[in-house]
Structures are given as structure tokens and as C-alpha cells.
Design a protein around this nucleic acid. Structure first.
Lengths: 141, 141
DNA sequence: CGAAAGTCGTTGCTTTATACAACTTACACA
DNA sequence: TGTGTAAGTTGTATAAAGCAACGACTTTCG
């Protein structure tokens, strides 16, 4: 069995390799939605809409970045803006039916890729891997 | 215990979250070396030098991208080019002492971050996580 | 041998993602 | 009611990345 040191090295190396490939993988899975725009759109879907500022805070992005991403998603017809009657500075962002469809397609492709990649994993390994990843990400920033 | 489906969803979600944050994390750990330039420099160190084309093939990058990354690393004094006497089209790339030092510092910061983040993991969980990641990444493309 | 074809690396151009700063509009509170 | 804060947009800058075209060199084959 490998030493703690070796395991730490392995984890580091494999996480780095994964991170390096991630954007490319996303682009292959769903050329229409980058990793970030997929994430933002998915967030809107989950929350049934939210403000641009919320997206920026949640994903540690500058509000200008979000503004342009949202503008692009709107141009594609994937997002619509609804003025907030309470506060006229705010726009609630919502997925459109087309956006929801694009998101569903992307999620399907993503899911298929993960399914295939993990097809021969047994239930216990899968459960543990899921827990480890969650635990890893949940650690203080 | 979660269903296979739930575990697949979790893995997908957590991997995505990790990928999204990776570049930023790298930038915080070693502002001098991006995720990619760190990787390229580390590759040169491991292999005791190689050609630009090898880097491009190995990391699925365009040769122009590698060319510019290497130029930047050279400008920083982290890499040197040695003409190949066998083939005058080729330059063997090597880390310089300064490059090796910058790499060592970056690797130390990286390692410290992983150490801290995984400090309270016991040996068995660490070993399993390392295996799972390796297995995940090793899957066909 | 000598010409055609392939390889290595650079450079020009383009696209995309991102940040920071300045600005506009709107709100809030004291 | 005026000053300060919040939401979003836009201008500018930087960096990463790809594709295409090129120059220098090597290999292959007629």
C-alpha cells in the first residue's frame, strides 16, 4: 500500500490533470455551452431564476463577467430578464424554454459521458467516490 | 445510502465545481505559474527536457499555444532552449535553475494546500481517493 | 542527385474569458 | 432631501487558445 505521501502526490497529480482537461471536455460534450455558461444556466434552472449579482457571488466571478455571459445567453435565446417590480435596479434572470432545452441536452451529454466512464464501477466505489469528492470540495476554501 | 443515480449526479456536480475553481486556485497558490505553465515546466523537469511538439501532443495543445507559453517561460528565465545537433529544426527545452526553483516553490505551495485540505483524512480514505481519481482519469479518452 | 513532401517551430489574426474601473440608475436611511 | 450603497453595463486590458500561413530544415523517392 502506498504511503500517505504518495497518496497525496497522486491526488494532487490527478486533480491537476483533470482540471487541465475539463474545459476541453466540456466543449466536446456541449459546444453550445461552455463550462461556465452551463453552470450559470443550470443555477438559474435550479433556483427558478435569480439575480446576476447572486450568480457573481456564488461563483466568485466579477459582475462584469456575469453581465457579459448573461448577455451572450440572452442573445442565444437561452435566458430572459424580468424586471423586478420591487426594485427597479434588479433583473430576475430566468431560463427560457429554449434555454431549458439546451441545458437538458448538455446535461444529457454530460451525464452520458459520466455514465460511460463510470460504467464498470460498483455501487460501493461509486458511493465512496461521490462522498470523497463532496468532502474534498466542502473543505474550507 | 444514495442510489447509483444520485451518486453519479454527485460525482458530476462535484467534478464540475472543482474544474470551475481550478484555475483560480492555481493562480492563488502560485501567481507566477498558471496551471498550464506549471504543468509544462513540471513535464520538462520530469523528462529532463523535451521538444515543444512533445508537449503539444501530450497535453493536447496547439503547437502555437505551446510556442507562446514556452516563449513566456523563457522570458521569465525558467526555460532554456538547446539546439539539437541531430536535427536543426528541433530545440530541446530544459528548465533552468531559476525555473526549477520557481517550480519547486509552486509545487510546495500546491502540496501545502493539498496537505491542509486533506489533513483530517485517514490513510485508508486517502488511499482510496487516490485510487479512484487515478481510475477515473485512466478511463478511455 | 534533386524535387516533392513532411516536420518543427514562429507569427499574424481571431475568439473567448476574465478582471478592474468608471459610470448610470435606483434605493435607503438618517 | 442628500449622501452613500447596490445592481448592472460598458470601456479597457490581459491572457489563453486555435487556425492558417510561413520559413527552415529533413526525409523520401523518382
Amino acid at each position: 500500500m502506498a504511503s500517505r505521501n504518495e497518496n497525496l502526490e497522486t491526488i494532487q497529480r490527478e486533480m491537476t490533470a483533470f482540471a487541465r482537461r475539463a474545459r476541453g471536455t466540456a466543449a466536446r460534450m456541449h459546444p453550445e455551452l461552455s463550462l461556465v455558461s452551463f453552470t450559470l444556466l443550470a443555477h438559474l434552472e435550479e433556483r427558478s431564476g435569480c439575480r446576476a449579482t447572486d450568480l457573481a457571488v456564488h461563483y466568485l466571478l466579477d459582475k462584469s463577467t456575469v453581465s457579459r455571459q448573461v448577455a451572450a445567453l440572452e442573445k442565444l435565446g437561452f435566458v430572459e430578464r424580468r424586471p423586478d417590480p420591487e426594485d427597479h435596479r434588479v433583473q430576475m434572470l430566468h431560463t427560457t424554454p429554449r434555454g431549458a432545452e439546451a441545458l437538458a441536452t448538455a446535461a444529457r451529454n454530460r451525464r452520458r459521458m459520466f455514465d460511460e466512464r463510470l460504467a464498470d464501477w460498483d455501487a460501493e466505489d461509486l458511493a465512496r467516490f461521490a462522498d470523497y469528492l463532496t468532502r474534498y470540495n466542502a473543505a474550507r476554501p
